[in-house]
Design a protein around this nucleic acid. Structure first.
Lengths: 341, 341
DNA sequence: CCAGATCTGAGGTACGTAAATCAAAATTTC
DNA sequence: GAAATTTTGATTTACGTACCTCAGATCTGG
């Protein structure tokens, strides 16, 4: 059976109180005695039962999740995942507080981070905006001994404990590869459709996409990227304009939200005129479009996985344990109509 | 503060014992009383503290994993994942025993299942062979109240609690779609290369592949499937023969193991003669081949995820709790060289 | 050598839940 | 209607660790 503190005490020939003093680094133990206890720990392979310890301490881990009050499907889904995780977490001595901030608002995010810090939680997870002020706020959190996990969108530098999200450059590259290969034998330019090129994820996706197109498909023309502002109506207009300007447009890589508009525009085209479309995030709308052959592939990040991973990492950071690295790597899911979940 | 069983008892005006009976579904509580307790649980938002519960139960879950003593990379990796999980599990009151059986040996698997049952574990996970005797053995386990999870390869029927593996038909379909699209504009037949068509997973992959090719790419010729016996040398020879017989061979879908041989055969071909190759399982060999542009895509199932999922499901079955459905769905990972982990 | 400080041991309680034991009430049986 | 049986409620102990108190032991310095 697993050894307990009692076994340690017996093996070292000391009392429970002394074992406790040694284990918890309290004063009042002679060096000789301390060594004897530590030997017993090693000899028996004692590992503190964290659950029992937390129970005794009455400790509850508190984590704060700061989420943008965005109305696109992905963010709504992410929020739902956090809420669900929060419910389950409460049974595991974790209290998760959810804080909303206006989307794309650096000031509000910084304020929320400072606010969170004031509450001295064990950890904070947030969807980062890659700005110097945010980085500074994150560094403050770290300096205060609070674990920091960026969710979905990362911060530059190392002002965080962990990033729970996909590699957006790799995602862009993957989209480029799929676009290029799916288009083999078909002539015409390709349109990159961003949400906003101000946000880091979108810039990185474009960067990866452009790199692959240049390296592997140099003959293919890439149009100047346009911004759909993560808004269906704007995206729809952008696509219409591109189609009008380039009759031979044969590919679209959409790496922002607002894909409902893009899909509407595609739907109106005669089948043989439809470009190859690769876009991000599996939602009801994009799933249906994939099934209906309106689009060709969806790159996805699993919001549930990201949230669960963030929580595991925060918890591990809080009690100084290790995580299973492979489990915390967020995959870039590629969905064709045939492998939809 | 979080409500405890005491709060529930007070709020419902009953004793702790009654609350306990209701929470753990034990007999001996009048319907009216049961309802009162359940109301209190809802009203106070009570969530059972799993750590305290496990502590009190002092229960150690015992699970048996039966793995084929196969020497291919995937099975070796799977085994390593089980071993790693077993180490971590011991800190969470779970004891995992690993049992080896000869690969593809129905009798040995049945014997191992019966043997496992004799030890009365809380759950058994095994890589199934889809045979009637195995199904019967699994049903015996279930009848004895032991949770049964099939790993990687499923059983027909419902003789199991859960299947921790991918949908192989969908995987085959995905491979078909990628092959067909990557080949657009290029003429020539495609070769399906199986490990063995006697095993269910391989049959299903072929079935999915063939279905998509027929539906979506009817003009493309599909050669009769050949069996590489999961052996590199055999696979290599099969590919060589196919290349000799069909000078215009332009695609290979390999859905068994032994891909080292396939890759050797491809490597010898001049670049412009190389077929589109889609295969299964990301290993050192297939990863290198992908990076070197020798193959085009790798379909993968994450062994670590499968093992962790199997354990979560077994644990949940053992103590009658629920799992996060989405977390237990094993994805078909598609890897191009650009989204390698 | 004695007072004071510093170590060590023994014992207890608490955390939140599970589960066993025991007591009381309700129901059935003869 | 009393005894036997079943149902329900109350109380208590245990899990492994943290942390508290108090008493005794050992070590300081004057």
């Amino acid at each position: 059976m697993k050894p307990t503190v009692h076994d340690i005490a017996a093996h070292a020939g000391v009392s429970l109180a002394t074992v406790d003093r040694v284990l918890n680094g309290r004063a009042g133990v002679r060096e000789v005695t301390r060594l004897r206890v530590e030997e017993a720990v090693t000899a028996l392979g004692f590992v503190r039962d964290v659950a029992a310890a937390n129970l005794a301490k009455g400790r509850v881990y508190t984590f704060t999740f700061i989420l943008p009050a965005n109305d696109n499907s992905f963010m709504i889904g992410l929020r739902a995942e956090v809420e669900q995780a929060a419910r389950r977490a409460s049974g595991e001595r974790m209290a998760i507080r959810i804080v909303d901030v206006p989307a794309f608002d650096t000031g509000a995010l910084v304020a929320a981070l400072e606010d969170a810090q004031a509450g001295m939680p064990d950890g904070v997870a947030f969807v980062a905006i890659d700005a110097a002020e945010v980085r500074a706020a994150a560094e403050n959190l770290l300096a205060a001994g609070i674990a920091v996990v960026t969710l979905v969108s990362d911060l530059g530098g190392t002002a965080r404990t962990h990033y729970a999200g996909i590699d957006n450059i790799a995602a862009g590259r993957t989209a480029g590869m799929l676009t290029g290969r799916f288009l083999s034998g078909r002539a015409g330019p390709v349109l990159p459709l961003a949400g906003s090129l101000m946000v880091r994820d979108h810039r990185e996706r474009l960067q990866g996409f452009s790199a692959v197109m240049t390296e592997r498909f140099p003959e293919r023309a890439i149009l100047a990227p346009v911004e759909g502002r993560d808004d269906p109506a704007t995206a729809e207009r952008m696509v219409e304009e591109a189609l009008a300007a380039h009759g031979d447009l044969c590919g679209i890589y959409s790496f922002g939200a607002g894909n409902r508009g893009l899909i509407r525009a595609i739907e109106r085209l005669p089948t043989q005129m439809r470009p190859v479309v690769i876009l991000h995030e599996l939602t009801d709308v994009t799933r249906l479009a994939l099934v209906a052959d309106l689009i060709d592939a969806v790159l996805n990040q699993d919001a549930g996985h990201e949230v669960r991973s963030a929580i595991r990492v925060l918890k591990a950071a809080a009690d100084g344990s290790k995580v299973v690295e492979a489990q915390e790597r967020i995959r870039i899911d590629i969905f064709l109509k045939d492998n939809l979940p």
